[in-house]
Amino acid sequence: MGEISLRTDNTPTVKPVPPRGRAPWPRRVVSRCRAISRRRLVRMITPWAFLALPLGLLILLTYLPAYNLIRYSLTDWDGIDPTMNWVGLANYQRMATDPALYRVLFVSLFYLVGAVVQIAIALYFATILSFKVFAKNVFKGILFFPYLINGVAIGYVFLYLFRKDGTLDTTLAFFGLQDPPQWLGDPKLINASLAGTSVWRFTGMNFVLFLGAIQSIPGDLYEAAELDGANSWHRFWHIILPGVRRVVALSFILAISGALAVFEIPYVMTGGANGSKTFAIQAVEMAFTHRKVGLASAMALVLLAMVLLVTWVQRRFFPDERVELT
């Protein structure tokens, strides 16, 4: 609005030379310049004003704690004392020289195997349920439902499932299997039981990811394949699997980092007892039982480094290539 009226105002008249002491340009022109610069300023600020809230929260809740974590990892802080002594890299030195701190990583292997099983199950059901099946949405709901339950609640439910003469033992007895093992009491079985709980919980999330990816594959591909005489295995291997490859790769990254950092289920169910201690539980124990927050912070950062490294190696060997189906 303003711009047009300004131009019509100014063009026809030739102004006399303004007397000394006055602004060389009519007031309206000056104000117009000011208006533009203010508008430009507003335009510059606007995105940042919008971003201020999320960025502020991000800094407050992610980067600030991360910065503190790094700071603590260079001290011998006990988590209570107002003073913390700078110890340099001593905590990292301990991490590098004490193999006892890494022994617990062996436990993560159980969860890694569990994650592979989980991806296989999820892919299987996602493939089946992406075609015409009886009561499809009910099955989708059933498969996804465990993911919606709070992890602590799952821990307690499975505690009752696994206990002696609990739900699992009773069910097995119904099928004639007497004398079941102690699912959590046997140190050889405990990690498999816990990894099984983890599979039950997270299959739903993988399932939904795969289902979404499979449904984005154009339907005419299946028709064309059918005309060419492809059976369902061929369709899975040559159409569906390449189509969801990136999502599968992503799932593997999440699976590996998840297996390294597994915490919630074993912590709620056993507290890390009976040989189920994971790296993250050990870090928590170091911080709150042995009051070595500095060392625990260093452990957390080493865990982060391990996850980043795994991701990097994974990306290195399976680069992110575009998938062309058509």
Partner: peptide
């Protein structure tokens, strides 16, 4: 002399 399965 203690419970069979201490974990539960």
């Amino acid at each position: 002399l203690t419970e069979d399965d201490p974990t539960t």
